[in-house]
Amino acid sequence: MRIGWKTLAVIAVMAVAVVTSTLYLLLSQPRLEDTLIIYGPRGISGLATALVNGFKSRYPDVNVTFISYGMGSIEIANKLIAEKGSPVADVIIGLPEFYAKVVVDAGALEPYKPQNLSLIPEEEIWDPTGTVLPMDKGYVIITYNETIISRLSLPPPERLDDLLRPEYKDLVFYQDPTSSGTGLSFLVWVLSVKGVDEGFDFLKRLEQNIKVHPSGWTTSIIALKSGEVAIGSMFNTDVGYEETPNLTSKAVEGFVYREGIALVRNAKHPEIAKKFIEFVLSTEAQNLVAPEGYMYPVNPKASVEFFSYAPVPSNRITFNRELAGSVEQWLDRWRREIKTG
């Protein structure tokens, strides 16, 4: 059967392109079976990358990778729980304090006490069962655009309750807690301080002043930059960020968002996993936290020079362990009563 030479040429080019692409992709991917797999939320992939790179320079013969499936912290934790029969991951990082109990109770994690835990101060260790080890922390505070606030001659906000001020109508925001870690921290902050039912009541009243619930950090920045909003929850390290130079805060009170690292039960590579956990708590690794993101190291020897500009809140609220219900229930309730209510 004769085929025109032009057709043959096109087919040849296509074939070469496809084969090259496939080979390239095949060869550039390591086999995941031999790899130490770290689960974590998408939001800390920057830090995760730095940690993995750092770990690899210490142990060059080890294959390591970080997988998030594009998921948030709650979702990846749920994934871990779902896989507990035959886990894929060896280590989980970025596990929020307010969700740790769920994962521990589900039996997906293995308690482990690394040597480097001695470097971490007592008050930073928040898991009573000793399963989830502290990794880093951040401060969620109430920030405001000082240009707009002074232009409107409004008093700057200091506390949660200030946000209810009628003068702040259509100026306030906090992120959608379903899609944003910052927003979730804000929600947990409110509930920790006021309890669940009063907390939701507060949020309902707050809706009067809310302009929008941005889906994440980028949309928050865009909303702030465009002047759509002037007051809202952000991490303290966002203050004075190049994109939002007018963003500032009284930093009177704030929520301490804490997340941890833990060993997965029945992990495929437990020994290397333990080494990784050791590494993450080491000063060397903890030094990577600040430059790579918006959170603080828990190891006091690690440098926080990077954040010298950021205001640390005077009154620091942590997660109230006594709260009734689960994060998922709160999120469902938030979507039903607050967002669309």
Partner: peptide, 14 residues
């Protein structure tokens, strides 16, 4: 697209 997300997550908006 993943790279875009990473840049966002590391606060490199521009």
């Amino acid at each position: 697209p993943v790279a875009v997300n990473i840049l966002i997550d590391t606060r490199r908006l521009s």
